[in-house]
Nucleic acid binder design. Structure first.
Lengths: 151, 151
DNA sequence: GTAGAACCTAAAGTCAGGTTTAGGTTAAAG
DNA sequence: CTTTAACCTAAACCTGACTTTAGGTTCTAC
C-alpha cells in the first residue's frame, strides 16, 4: 500500500510538517516519490515511524535515530551495533521506569498530603501529623519518593 | 542549615547556571541573600528542588511549576488547586508508564530479533522465522509494543 | 482546461530549557 | 591589606525539535 503524506498524518496523528522534517533529516532513506515529486509513503515508512517513536521514547535524539537507520542500510555487517543499541536502550528505559516510580510515589504522597489538608482546611494538618498517624503505604511512598521532607 | 550555590550544585548535581536560571524564573520565592547579595540556600530551597524535579519528571514545564509555587505562597486558599494538580500529575505519570511499557516491549522484541539475527549471521533469520517458532513471551512483547510488523 | 485541494521547497521563526560571556563584587585566607 | 576563589547580573547565545511562511507545482474532479 501507498499513502500520501496527508493520509499518514491523519492516521498517525503526526503533523505533516513533522513528517517532512523527518524526511529532511533522512529518516526515510528509501521513500519513493511520484513523477511530480510527491512523497509516497509505503508500509516500510509506516514501520519506520514505529521505530522512530520507540527510539524517541527511549531517549534517543533524531540524529541518533538517523544513525541507527543508516546502520540498517548497511545490511548484516552492522547487526552487532544495532543489537547493542537496543540492549543499551532497554537498560536506559528500565532506569527511566525506576525514576518514574519514584516520581509516582512522591505524587501519591502529595495527594495524601493535600487530601488531609483539604479535609482539615489547613496545610498544618498533614504538616503536624506525627509519623505514627500517617498510613503505612503513604510513608512507604514518601521513603521511596524524591522528597526529603514533608511539605 | 544554609548552603552556597556551589555547595548545592555539587551535592545535587544540578549546574550552578541552572540553579541561577531557576531562581531567575522565580522558583525560590523565599530564598535569602547575604548582605552582599550572595544566595543562601536553606533546607526549604533544597526541598523545593525535590518538588521541581518531581513535577518536571511528571511532565510540567518550568512555567507551570512556577505557577504551582505561586499557589503555595497563597496559603490555604489554594489547597484545592494544588490537590487537583497532583491528582492530574498522578494520572499523567500513570499514562507515561503505560507508554514506557510498550516501548520496553518493542525494545525486548528487537533484542530477541537481533540476537537471532546475530546467531544466524543474517537478518533474514528472524525475518523469515514462522510465528510458531517465536517464543511466546517475545510474541507478547511484539503484540503490546508499538510496532506493527517485524523488522 | 480550469478550479481547488493537496502537495512541494527553502528559509526563517519559535519555544523550552538551559549555558556562556563579559564585566564586575564579595568574602575567606594569609 | 591583598589575593583569589567563589559569587553576582544582564544579555547574548545555543540546541533540539519542530512549525510557519512564502511562493510555487501537481493532481483530481468537473
Amino acid at each position: 500500500m501507498q499513502y500520501s503524506i496527508g493520509q499518514v498524518a491523519k492516521s498517525t496523528g503526526i503533523a505533516i510538517s513533522t513528517l517532512r522534517y523527518y524526511d529532511r533529516e533522512g529518516l526515510f532513506p528509501n521513500m519513493e516519490r511520484s513523477g511530480g515529486g510527491i512523497r509516497r509513503f509505503s508500509d516500510r515508512e509506516i514501520e519506520t515511524l514505529g521505530i522512530i517513536e520507540c527510539l524517541k521514547n527511549s531517549g534517543l535524539s533524531i540524529k541518533e535515530i538517523k544513525l541507527f537507520l543508516d546502520w540498517c542500510q548497511e545490511g548484516d555487517s552492522s547487526l552487532q551495533k544495532r543489537r547493542d543499541l537496543f540492549y543499551e536502550r532497554l537498560a536506559a528505559v528500565t532506569k527511566q521506569m525506576e525514576e518514574l516510580k519514584k516520581t509516582m510515589n512522591t505524587l501519591r504522597f502529595k495527594c495524601w498530603y493535600y487530601d488531609t489538608a483539604l479535609t482539615a482546611g489547613t496545610e498544618d494538618a498533614p504538616r503536624n501529623l506525627p509519623q505514627s498517624q500517617i498510613p503505612e503505604d503513604i510513608l512507604a511512598c514518601q521513603r521511596s519518593g524524591c522528597l526529603n521532607s514533608l511539605g
